[in-house]
Simulated assay, not measured.
Amino acid sequence: MVKLSFPRELRLLIPSDFTFVFQKPQRVSTSQLTILGRLNKLGHPRLGLAIAKKYVKRAHERNRIKRLVRESFRLYQYQLSSMDFVILVKRGVDNLTNPVLTQMLEKLWHCYYF
């Protein structure tokens, strides 16, 4: 049985993890979101979030976006390659509704299926 949880080992937690992804990423993006990915040797994907105040001013909007991204990753984790992912946002992402943002993330994850 598949567990659809989001435990600590599926998160990028320390700066060196983020630096590893930023060095040589595979990039997939839309006009509001970018997903950077880099293969890891852990056997499972991990997620890191970089939601800048510069692009999403209000904290409740940043939290909403983070919640939706985490939920999307949680549902797709077993279909993704063993990669470290960092989600970056661009201007206008806070204007997207939840269904639109979820659908956008779903399309972007398809680029990283194994």
Rank of each mutant, 00 (worst) to 15 (best):
Y112I: 02
N95L: 14
L68H: 03
L13S: 14
F6V: 05
N63K: 11
H110K: 14
D94A: 15
G92K: 10
S31T: 11
F85V: 01
T102A: 08
F6A: 07
V89N: 13
K57S: 04
L105W: 05
S5N: 15
C111T: 07
D94W: 04
L49F: 11
R58I: 01
R8T: 14
M1I: 02
L88Q: 02
I51M: 04
T19M: 06
N95A: 09
L80A: 01
D94G: 14
S31F: 02
A50N: 09
L68E: 07
Q26Y: 10
V100D: 15
Y78V: 02
K54L: 00
P25C: 00
L47V: 01
R8F: 01
Q32V: 15
L36F: 13
R46W: 07
N63C: 12
D94Y: 08
F114L: 15
R46E: 02
L10I: 08
L12Q: 14
R58V: 05
F73C: 09
S5A: 15
L80Q: 06
T102Y: 12
E9N: 15
L42N: 07
P99W: 05
P25H: 07
W109I: 06
K66G: 02
Y113F: 14
P99A: 04
R64H: 00
Q79K: 15
V2K: 12
V69Q: 10
F85M: 12
L4Y: 14
L36H: 08
V56A: 12
L39E: 15
L68R: 00
A52W: 01
K53L: 02
Q77K: 14
N40Y: 10
Q23R: 15
N98C: 11
L12W: 08
P45K: 05
K54E: 03
L105Y: 00
I35N: 07
S16Y: 06
K3D: 08
T97V: 09
V56M: 11
A59Y: 05
Q103K: 12
V28C: 06
Q79N: 05
K3Q: 12
Y112C: 03
Y113D: 06
R74W: 03
Y55M: 06
V21L: 01
H110V: 04
R91I: 11
M104H: 02
K41T: 15
L13A: 14
E71F: 06
P7G: 04
H44K: 08
V2S: 14
F114M: 13
N40S: 07
F73G: 01
K53R: 13
R70M: 03
P25R: 07
R64I: 06
L33G: 08
L49Q: 02
V69M: 04
R11G: 06
R27G: 03
S29Y: 06
L108S: 07
V2C: 05
L4G: 08
N40H: 09
N40W: 12
W109V: 03
A50H: 10
